[in-house]
Nucleic acid binder design. Structure first.
Length: 430
RNA sequence: UCCUCGGUAGCUCAAUGGUAGAGCAAUCGGCUGUUAACCGAUGGGUUGGGGGUUCAAGUCCCUCCCGAGGAGCCA
């Protein structure tokens, strides 16, 4: 008797097959029982009638508890009464492992309890849907760059110094010397752009900031492309194509997950270019018109981002920020050197900053000056300066937070559900 | 780090300063088409820890711990 995955059952109508999985729920009505069996590919209802089963198999059905490992043998029936349209009419049943007192019951639970049981919460339908979307997004990112002939450059996680010199880093011991967990792969990507032209990295990054909000994690995944000879307008085109492609793939491949999440696909259908592009100065004007208390030179707060994004029906680029509020490596605007060629992409619906990027300084002396102005340790950046010393070239890149993108596509409010095992302020279990 | 709210059965929550309760889960029984099934019964508590006020504290006060929401910081 062949083992068939639940997702493939509709290919075997009338056949007798075995399904192996976990018992999600059971309803019993005297001599007939309905069991929801989940195998990872889907959920199927097993219908079991006492008179059609051996005494042993019927006993196994009575004994089976929620989340027990079970094997159901039976005929595949197409039946409109069954959720999913297909059910298994049992001719045999056994319990391979009996679960006792599974903590997550079919009724409601609080967030704290579910986070404490994250390793089990993963089995819940909503969590499976979110992580399924995450998987598709990561795959679409790799496909996007592969199709455009980018080379994958894995950046290091252990680094000898604070890359951007801004955020708080996790420190560890490297054979007696201090080392830090990476907060960005960008600086390591820029030299690689001179080797391959178009490169990207995707991996975990770490920030030791004591942020306690729905939009922050201590450990999050970031994808960062870096392209030689790409300048500021082209960078925005790339980000626009990139985000549009991800949205298209989620719509195409994740419709069932979106349905489980009750996510309106229209919200994702509207993520197509061109995205509006406004300057920081224009953004401040809009915010002031909307009654936000903000002055030129201030950074956006969470509410500012939401108010600004709500002015548009799709993601919006904000560009040309004051140089002082941005990282040391951003190229100054030729028309107004007070401004940096940096851009943020703000997502609608309050999801905030999805992408941050810039054209990088490619002039050696200017970069050296900026490193000194920011009081960064020059010796640690010697290799980074080398990129501008041996065949310098204009180049640009951006970074996108994977979790923020997943939360946005799924329409869920908190980042903690968008990564299998979130690392949050003071919380690292399980 | 700061502000606000909260911590009572395995879970979600009730309980004027006066006998700690319900639903779900668990256990047992009933039911041949259930959709978080339903019906009946049973077991289940150091009310987050410590201290205080009071004849009497889950309830009021102090303190510590833990959690949630928000702010700041940031992607």
């Amino acid at each position: 008797m062949s083992v068939v995955s639940v997702s493939q059952l509709k290919e075997h109508p009338g056949e007798s097959v075995t399904v192996r999985g976990w018992l999600e729920n059971k309803r019993r009505s005297g001599k007939i029982a309905f069991l929801q069996v989940r195998d990872g590919s889907g959920i199927v209802q097993v219908v079991a009638s006492k008179k059609e089963l051996s005494e042993e198999a019927w006993e196994a059905i009575l004994e089976a508890t929620q989340e027990s490992t079970v094997a159901a043998i039976g005929k595949v029936n197409v039946d409109p009464r069954a959720p999913g349209g297909v059910e298994l009419h049992a001719s045999g049943f056994r319990v391979d492992h009996l679960t006792e007192e599974y903590p997550i019951t079919p009724k409601e639970h609080g967030t704290a309890f579910l986070m404490e049981h994250r390793h089990l919460w993963l089995r819940s339908s909503k969590q499976r849907a979110i992580l399924g979307v995450r998987s598709e997004i990561c795959q679409s990112i790799r496909d996007f760059f592969y199709q455009r002939e980018f080379i994958l450059i894995d950046s290091p996680i252990l680094t000898p110094n604070a890359c951007e010199g801004t955020s708080t880093l996790f420190q560890t011991d490297y054979f007696g010397d201090p080392a830090f967990l990476s907060q960005s792969g960008q600086l390591y990507l820029e030299p690689a752009a001179a080797a391959f032209g178009k490169v990207y990295c995707m991996g975990p990054t770490f920030r030791a900031e004591k942020s306690k909000t729905r939009r922050h994690l201590m450990e999050f995944w970031m994808v960062e492309p870096e392209v030689a000879f790409l300048e500021f307008d082209g960078l925005q085109d790339l980000a626009e194509d990139f985000v549009s492609y991800i949205a298209e793939r989620v719509l195409e491949r994740c419709s069932e997950n979106l349905r489980v999440l009750e996510r309106d696909p229209a919200k994702i259908e509207s993520i197509t270019g061109p995205f509006p592009r406004i300057t920081y100065t224009k953004a401040i004007e809009i915010l002031q018109e909307q009654g936000q208390e903000i002055a030129w030179g201030d950074d956006f707060g969470g509410e500012d981002e939401t108010v600004l994004a709500n002015q548009f029906d799709r993601p919006v680029f904000v560009t040309h920020f004051p140089s002082e509020m941005k990282a040391f490596y951003m190229q100054p605007d030729a028309d107004d050197p007070k401004l940096a060629l940096g851009m943020d992409l703000l997502a609608p619906e309050g999801y905030g900053e999805i992408i941050g990027g810039s054209q990088r300084i490619h002039d050696h002396d200017l970069l050296l000056q900026r490193i000194q102005e920011h009081d960064l340790p020059l010796e640690a950046f010697q290799w980074y300066l080398d990129v501008r010393k041996y065949g310098s070239y204009p180049h640009s890149g951006f970074g996108m937070g994977i979790e923020r993108c997943v939360a946005w596509m799924c329409g869920i409010p908190h980042l903690r559900e968008t990564i299998p095992y979130p690392r949050m302020l003071y919380k690292i279990y399980p």
